[in-house]
Each structure stands twice: as C-alpha cells, then as structure tokens.
C-alpha cells in the first residue's frame, strides 16, 4: 500500500537514474560565480545572500568558486541543471569515447566469462549524456550509441548464459552495472530462493524446521511436511491477504 508491489521487488528505472545522478562529473562552467560574488558583496548585504550557494548534499565551495572554462567537479544532476540553463559544458568521461568503448568491446569479446570494467553506472550515464549533452561529445553520437548497444547486447548474452549456473548457495557478479543488476534482480532472486527451498527440503528435517517456519500454515498437519509449499502460498493466506 505505502510502497507499490512493483517497487518492493526492485528499483524503478527512474529511481536508478536518481541514484546515478548523485555521482560526480566534471564540467566546464560558462559563468564565473567567484567574481560576481565579490562584486555583490561590495554592493549590499541582501545581494550577497541571494548569490550564496548553501547546498545540503555537496560542498558548496565548488559552486561558489566557479570560473569560466576552469574545470570543476559537481554532481551529475546539478551539471544537467546548469547545462539546461546553458551555464556549463559537461566533460565527457574518458570511457565514453569511441576509443574507450572499443577497448571495452575487445575485452568483452576476448573474455567470454568476464565483464569488462565499465563504470557501474555506464548504461545510465551514457543514456543521460546522449540525451542532454549531445553537443559536448567530440565523437559522433551515433557511433557511440552503436558501441553502447553492442556492449549491452554482448553483456546481456553473457548474463543469459550465466543463468544456468544459478544455484542455492551464492553468486559473484563483478563489474555488472546498476541497471543490469536492477533488471535481473527479480528473476535471479526468485529462482535462487526457489532453489534454496528445493535444496532445503532434501535435507534432514531438524535443520530446516525453524528456518522455514515462517509460512503461516493454515493446516497444521501439512506445515511440517511441505515447507516449501506453505511458503509459496503464504501470500494468498490471511493475515497477509486481507490487509495487503
């Protein structure tokens, strides 16, 4: 109720973008906040208050001392905001060039069982920058888009092939991006949870009885025999059912 079921499983794409937007990125400001502040200081007090940056999520000093064309680092959402006001140019990160992506592609092709060390937010950042800072790229965007698409597909294929190794114990997924994780989360978690229950039901009874006792058995006799079953059906049985 307070949190839609969809959001209980995983993050929405918008939320993923929100998380990514808290990352830092380098920009070239097109305005000088430093000088303007000094000027207004000498003018009057009220003006000073107005041009002050008092930020809660970052160090305001970076913003108070912006000088034209002198690179500085701000959070991505702020960079995009300044960009919309045409107050800055975004410096495209090094991996997001034709050369950088080509290297990653080669790595992906050479290592069938590994993921290249792209930043964890690569899919999101590239998408945002393509959309909102298209004029800041040195390389032609369609070529970059192609390579991003290739990377996405080759990695997706690896993930799909890796799915057959899902087990009841654990999984290591290095270098997988946040969006890729988010996309896979419901599937992987569900499958591994089921595998865990199947594995547990093959074990002697004592071990599992207190771990899987959370299913609210409507029939007491069945409860101990078919732990996994009661677990699966627990959502359709009150008290959960009636309230949620």
């Amino acid at each position: 109720m307070s949190l839609p079921a969809l959001l209980q499983e995983t993050f929405s794409p918008e939320e993923v973008q929100f998380i990514v937007e808290n990352q830092k990125i380098k920009i070239f400001p097109r305005i000088t906040t430093n000088k303007r502040r000094n000027l207004s200081d000498s003018n009057n007090e009220g003006n000073d208050d107005m041009s002050r940056w008092k930020m809660l999520t970052m160090d305001g000093r970076a913003l108070e001392t912006m000088i034209v064309m002198k690179s500085t680092e701000v959070t991505l959402w702020l960079a995009l905001l300044l960009k919309q006001q045409s107050k800055c140019n975004i410096i495209i990160p090094e991996w997001l060039t034709v050369r950088g992506l080509e290297l990653m592609l080669q790595y992906e092709k050479r290592n069938v069982d590994r993921f290249s060390a792209l930043p964890w937010d690569w899919l999101v950042v590239s998408e945002i920058l393509f959309k909102q800072a298209a004029d800041d790229f040195n390389d032609p965007i369609h070529e970059l888009r192609n390579r991003i698409q290739d990377l996405k597909e080759i990695r997706q294929m690896k993930v799909l092939q890796g799915l057959k190794y899902l087990n009841e114990s654990h999984l290591q997924l290095d270098n997988l991006g946040i969006l890729e994780i988010n996309e896979l989360r419901p599937f992987i978690v569900t499958v591994m949870d089921k595998l865990r229950l199947i594995h547990a039901s093959g074990q002697p009874d004592e071990e599992e009885s207190d771990e899987y006792g959370e299913g609210n058995a409507d029939d007491v006799g069945m409860g101990t025999m078919l732990n996994s079953d009661t677990n699966m059906s627990s959502s359709s049985v009150p008290p959960n059912g009636t309230m949620l």
Binding site: V189, G213, A217
Partner: peptide
C-alpha cells in the same frame, strides 16, 4: 508443537 502462525521476515532471502 507446530509452525508459528506469524509471518517473519524471510531471513534467507537472497540479496545483492
């Protein structure tokens, strides 16, 4: 003597 009837969090749920 049997299963508790109150829902507990699924302690063994898989998380990333």
């Amino acid at each position: 003597g049997t299963v508790p009837m109150i829902d507990e969090p699924d302690w063994n749920k898989f998380v990333f």
